[in-house]
């Protein structure tokens, strides 16, 4: 069974739990004392991941770190429909790769601001917030134009991809880092669509949404 080195309040760990839940893949959690114990920075954990960060998965001895890389691996291996990581469609795959790189940016700004506010990480809060707003403007515009074309997800196509999973928690928890979503109505509609996906699970700080009308 997949072993996930996990922490409840980490957005990057939550991305893995969310995809595993949607794909209905069983896994075992190994709780890391991220805060206040800094266990992921300790000598023991660095034997698993020398970079000292989580999440890490161990799938029958195959060890992989880096949140967005793990999403790619899990979707490629465990999604029989091939829609979450669309390797058979080069254009969509290119878009997915592009937005996954964009998600590195939202993680390093919006989610970094959240880590600073709630878990004492030493980041420049104002710079993180300003950077997140710059990216959110771009993403909101992109999603607004997607809606204008009848598209619901970050990459084109009928169904969501790992790019949606990679971006979702950075956006949905941004207010924990003092980043208001007042200016991003299309982003707020998109987070609700993600929350209505079958198999969706939440994490602390994400509020439930009403069911879609029948």
């Amino acid at each position: 069974m997949i072993k996930l080195y996990d922490y409840l309040l980490s957005v990057n760990c939550y991305k893995q739990r969310l995809l595993l839940s949607i794909l209905d893949v069983p896994y075992e959690r190994v709780d890391i004392d991220f805060y206040p114990g800094w266990e992921h920075k300790g000598a023991e954990f660095r034997k698993i991941n020398p970079l000292g960060h989580i999440p890490v998965i161990d799938d029958d001895g195959y060890v992989l770190w880096d949140a967005h890389a793990i999403l790619v691996y899990l979707a490629s291996k465990y999604d029989p429909t091939g829609s979450w990581y669309p390797v058979s469609d080069p254009r969509r795959l290119g878009e997915v790769a592009s937005w996954m790189l964009f998600a590195e940016g939202t993680t390093n700004t919006a989610s970094a601001a959240r880590l600073h506010v709630s878990l004492d990480y030493d980041f420049d809060l104002e710079a993180c917030q300003a950077g997140a707003h710059r990216l959110f403007r771009v993403l909101d515009e992109h999603l607004w134009f997607q809606e204008q074309q009848g598209q619901e997800w970050v990459a084109s196509g009928e169904s969501p991809t790992v790019a949606d999973i990679a971006l979702f928690p950075d956006v949905a928890l941004s207010e924990d880092g003092g980043i208001s979503r007042l200016d991003y109505p299309a982003l707020r509609r998109w987070t609700e669509r993600v929350q209505r996906l079958p198999g969706f699970i939440d994490m602390p700080g994400i509020f439930p949404v009403a069911k879609a009308p029948a």
Binding site: P185, A210, A212, P213
Partner: peptide
């Protein structure tokens, strides 16, 4: 807001 912002079962922040 724009009317199109008010999708079903949604709450717009303004």
């Amino acid at each position: 807001a724009s009317c199109a912002d008010l999708v079903p079962r949604h709450v717009v922040k303004a």
